[in-house]
């Protein structure tokens, strides 16, 4: 992993991968969305509103997956002092928060016709809202510590407190996942388990396309943001040097 500790080497790898992830992901998610809208059948009970699944499930997956990524980055920062870990954490946080919000909004729009309510304080919804607030906290901490240079290295890293916050926040992930099993909740139980899927194949397959498409796209956004943060730090370092030399 330390082979990519050098930002120049990382950039050399990230630059050619980004367009593939971006356009490949976009193509897959548009194909999946169109198939989900026009080719897959309506649900026997929910009717047409089942189609929001093709955005809602990838959003939930990426909202939670984003925090997994942030936690791994935090661990790499704490243990291996990897200079790009803080940059990766900062880069993941904003799209992660965006997808978590998208998950809550699409769930709410689906809940109105299906359950008869926009919002209820049940275990799944409350724990997902907590995840959104964790993202906000992480973004604020990371911004503050990167701005005043308390992070490691000069690559725009984040402070150790921010990394600890990320690791502690990971407690919420199993709670979100198990919330519908532990507690009576309005949200239905898991449809896809190790034993199989209770989603009929004709409804399930476009979900695979949008899930993969959104995930690749998420990867592209994270790489782009990492490159932007690294570039920004380079500019700042150069400006500081010029100011010093000018004196």
């Amino acid at each position: 992993m330390h082979a990519y500790a050098n930002p120049a080497r990382f950039l050399g790898l990230a630059r050619p991968i980004t367009p593939w992830l971006f356009w490949g992901g976009l193509l897959l998610l548009i194909t999946g969305a169109l198939c989900g809208l026009f080719l897959s059948p309506a649900d026997y009970l929910q009717g047409e509103s089942v189609r929001i699944l093709y955005v809602h499930v990838p959003s939930a997956w990426l909202g939670m997956g984003g925090w997994v990524g942030i936690s791994i980055a935090a661990l790499m920062q704490m243990v291996w002092r990897h200079p790009l870990a803080g940059v990766a954490g900062r880069a993941i946080a904003v799209p992660g928060a965006l997808f978590t919000a998208l998950c809550l909004v699409t769930g709410s729009i689906w809940g109105r016709p299906t359950w008869g309510t926009w919002w209820e304080w049940d275990g799944r919804m409350t724990s997902m809202l907590v995840l959104l607030f964790l993202y906000f906290g992480y973004i604020a901490l990371a911004r503050a510590s990167a701005a005043d240079g308390r992070g490691i290295g000069d690559n725009g890293g984040i402070s150790r407190v921010t990394a600890i916050f990320a690791l502690v926040g990971a407690v919420n992930l199993p709670i979100i996942n198990r919330s519908v099993v532990w507690w009576n909740s309005l949200h239905q139980g898991p449809s896809i388990t190790v034993r199989g899927s209770s989603i009929d194949g004709s409804i399930l397959w476009p979900l695979g396309l949008t899930l993969l498409g959104f995930s690749l796209w998420f990867g592209a956004i994270v790489l782009m943001r990492m490159r932007a943060i690294l570039a920004e730090n380079k500019i700042e370092a150069r400006l500081a040097r010029m100011a010093r030399d000018g004196e």
Binding site: P41, A42, D43, Y44, L45, Q46, V50, L53, T114, W115, G116, T117, E120, L186, Q188, G189, P190, S191, S198, I199, D200, S202, I203, L204
Partner: peptide, 13 residues
């Protein structure tokens, strides 16, 4: 409130 279960299937089924 109506509670939905974890089944998703077309009307034919």
């Amino acid at each position: 409130l109506a509670k939905h279960d974890e089944r998703y299937m077309p009307r034919e089924l």
